[in-house]
């Protein structure tokens, strides 16, 4: 949990793989990296076994770049596709039992608070729609009601992609899948509404076809979770296997879904707005100057 844990012991650097040396010497640790610098520094995410062209991978890659302090971040995940990539990054990853990721993260963030006090240590939960809205639903919601201070990111591919295409709570009504041949009979769960109801300080929906927007959303969510309260991001990350999207049409699909049912939305509580403006200088949340009085 500091910059030192990635560095080499003296004399051992020549035995380390090239990727590791690049990461220590030219990685994002201790620097401010942005999406516009992509391709010119070593990313903390490494090679992973996820499918070619997976939009979830793109989102995870953008998320890893967007963390405000990657050296002070721990990711928590659970069973599902996402953990295949999240676990291949150079930041600690905790793999919870199926569904208990938000409970694990609650303990972890409290423990880090006790151990490190005011030094910010970020806990970020990244799990799929099944782990969060179905199996881990109670733990997710309870962590929000308890106002646990960490970020929850749902990688919503609207299907159980890892196990052959069963419907999840986040699948759209009427959707026919390999293991749901009659089509889903119920509506998609409104996790955004529930997050607001449960008192999340920041709630956003995002589609990874706008990297800068993903970056800004994740930065805000992680910063707000440090002191204000729980934050929730719901990201549409299509499953190109179960939904039969050709890999080169994944971003076209993301674009059409964004205009159709996954429009960008952002809810920031007043307390979080004030915190972002005063502590981190977010200009859009600074109090606006009083309007000039109309001439008499």
């Amino acid at each position: 949990m500091s910059l030192d844990y990635v560095k080499f012991s003296p004399g051992f650097d020549k035995f380390m793989p090239k990727e590791y040396r690049d990461m220590v010497e030219h990685g994002p640790f201790g620097k401010k990296t942005t999406v516009s610098q992509m391709g010119s520094f070593k990313e903390i995410l490494e090679e992973h076994p996820m499918c070619a062209g997976c939009a979830m991978t793109l989102f995870i890659r953008l998320a890893m770049i967007s963390f405000p302090n990657p050296e002070d971040t721990i990711t928590v995940g659970t069973a599902g596709c996402g953990r295949l990539a999240i676990s291949q990054a150079a930041i600690p990853f905790v793999y919870g039992n199926y569904g208990d990721q938000n409970a694990v993260a609650s303990g972890l963030s409290r423990g880090l608070k006790l151990r490190f006090g005011d030094i910010p240590k970020d806990v970020v939960v990244m799990a799929g729609d099944g782990g969060m809205a179905d199996i881990g639903f109670s733990m997710t919601l309870h962590s929000w009601f308890r106002k646990e201070r960490f970020t929850t990111i749902m990688l919503d591919n609207e299907v159980y992609g890892n196990t052959g295409g069963q419907e999840s709570g986040m699948t759209n009504k009427g959707q026919v899948l390999k293991m749901a041949p009659l089509g889903k009979k119920f509506e998609k769960m409104d996790m955004i509404g529930m997050a607001k109801l449960a008192g999340c300080a920041y709630v956003a929906t995002v589609v990874p076809n706008n990297p800068r927007r993903v970056e800004s959303v994740i930065k805000k969510a992680v910063l707000i979770a440090r002191e204000i309260g729980p934050t929730y991001i719901q990201a549409y990350t299509s499953c190109n296997i179960e939904y039969s999207i050709p890999t080169d049409k994944v971003l076209e699909d993301a674009k059409s879904v964004e205009t159709d049912r996954y429009a960008f939305s952002e809810y920031v509580s007043d307390e979080a707005k004030e915190y972002l403006a005063t502590r981190y200088g977010f200009k859009e949340y600074l109090p606006k100057p009083a309007a000039a009085l109309p001439k008499a």
């Binding site: 990727e19 992509m38 391709g39 996820m50 793109l58 990297p211 971003l251």
Partner: peptide, 14 residues
Amino acid sequence: KLCTQYCPEANTIL
């Protein structure tokens, strides 16, 4: 530089 931002694989398009 759009391709560097949209590639799903890390460290691939440099």
